[in-house]
Design a protein around this nucleic acid. Sequence first.
DNA 1: TTTGATGCAAAGGATTTGCAAATTT
DNA 2: AAATTTGCAAATCCTTTGCATCAAA
Lengths: 145, 145
Amino acid sequence: MDEIPEKLKQAGLKVTLPRIKILETLEKSAGQHASAEEIYRLLLQHDEEIGVATIYRVLTQCEQAGLIHRLQFEGGRAVFELACASHHDHLVCVRCGQVEEFYDEVIESRQREIAGEAGFDIEDHSMVLYGLCPRCRQQAPKEDG
Amino acid sequence: MDEIPEKLKQAGLKVTLPRIKILETLEKSAGQHASAEEIYRLLLQHDEEIGVATIYRVLTQCEQAGLIHRLQFEGGRAVFELACASHHDHLVCVRCGQVEEFYDEVIESRQREIAGEAGFDIEDHSMVLYGLCPRCRQQAPKEDG
DNA sequence: TTTGATGCAAAGGATTTGCAAATTT
DNA sequence: AAATTTGCAAATCCTTTGCATCAAA
């Protein structure tokens, strides 16, 4: 499973320790989704002191190379994921931040139809369902009256 | 159609000139979608000098009151729309920024099913299709190859 | 008049950038 | 050795906040 250096090479990026560490961290992060700052902290925990600037730069370069995806959920900071998996959309827990992936062919085909009717040439789409994950639902049975 | 003051009152907000102007500007903006900065500039064009801080404050307050929605498309800045219309999702032109709305019951119901299977209690969702609108498609027949 | 709203400028968080020093090929 | 990459700090973008002034109820 250690193809990270290969991928960097194929992307025309030099294979450096920071890059490898950053991608490995993303790979191992919970649910394989992490923000730049989370990656920074995870690296620190493993005694890898890589500056935030480098992390942002590497993530941006890898995104442009198609190695990772940048996800813009509600709440400002971007979250990144390795691009190895096939296309999918996301379920995000508004309480704990947990991210789950899903893919639904019915939705995908409806999207194509809708875009076609509107005359749009779709390049990309994002679909995020926000709510409480099973765990958080139990911990917060009811919030209001 | 001039119910803006009414809505403000119902939301428990004082009916002030800046608020009325800001909501009117949003109402009249292209496709009824605008960012805070766009609203600021549109107001300036009509010789209304309202500070950005006020615009952000008013937009945030109106959002909390349910009068408008804050949309987080790709690219950082938030875009706002009046909440008068019923729920819908968005098609965004990646070139000219044009925003179109759509609603599809098939997608909506699939979303509910998916969330249910995952055990999530959905509070909200966002779905955005990014691509070239009909006009921009003509102006840019092919970019590569 | 009392309460809430505005404007300005300063603060804030996330991300980017300039430049010299350090690395990879 | 040549070309990139890194780290740091300063800069930038978008948005929020503190506080004195001003307007709405």
